[in-house]
Amino acid sequence: MPDVSDILVSSSVMTHPVRLAQAQRLAARLRLDGLAIDPDPEGPPSALRTAQVAWSAAAPEASHHLVVQDDVDAPVELLEIVARAAARFPDEALVFYTNWHARNGAAARLAALAGAAWVRAVPDEFTPSLGVCLPAGTAAAFRADARESAERHDDELLSVFFRGRGRMSLLAVPNIVEHIGTSSINGHAAQGIRRAVCPTSAADAAPLLSRGRVLEEPGWIPYMRYGEGYVRLVGQEHGPDAGRGHHRWREALPSTGLTEGDVLAAREAHLPPELAAEVARAFGDAFAEELWTHCLLLGRQAALASRRLGPAPGEIPVDVLDRLRCSAVATAGLAGLPPERRPEAGPDEVRTMAAFAWTAIHAGNLLVRPGA
Rank of each mutant, 00 (worst) to 15 (best):
F126W: 10
T138A: 13
T200D: 06
R152M: 06
A190W: 10
L130Q: 13
Y226I: 13
I185S: 07
A121R: 02
E156T: 13
A117E: 01
G164H: 01
R244W: 02
V214S: 09
P254R: 02
W220Q: 09
P199F: 11
E216G: 13
S210D: 15
R213W: 00
A121Y: 01
V132K: 03
D155K: 00
G115F: 00
D204H: 11
R250L: 08
A139R: 07
A196Y: 07
F126Y: 11
A150R: 14
V214F: 08
A139Y: 01
G137P: 03
Q191R: 15
C133W: 04
E216P: 01
R143L: 15
V119E: 10
P240T: 05
A203S: 03
E156A: 15
T200G: 12
A111T: 09
E178G: 13
V197Y: 01
G181F: 12
N186S: 15
R152I: 09
E251W: 03
G187V: 11
R147H: 12
R225C: 02
G131T: 02
R152C: 08
R211S: 15
F161I: 14
E178C: 10
W249G: 05
H246N: 07
D124H: 12
Y223Q: 07
L134S: 09
E237A: 10
R152V: 13
L215N: 09
V122G: 06
A136E: 10
Y223L: 15
P174W: 00
L113P: 00
E237T: 06
E251L: 12
A203K: 11
M168C: 11
G212L: 14
A121H: 05
L171T: 08
L253I: 02
Q236K: 00
E125Y: 14
A189V: 12
A150T: 14
R147E: 15
F142C: 08
I221V: 15
E237F: 12
G131P: 03
G235T: 05
D204A: 09
V214I: 10
G245M: 04
G219E: 01
R225A: 14
D155A: 12
A141D: 13
G187F: 01
P123Y: 03
A140G: 05
Y223V: 12
E216L: 12
S159C: 14
L157N: 08
L110V: 02
V173L: 11
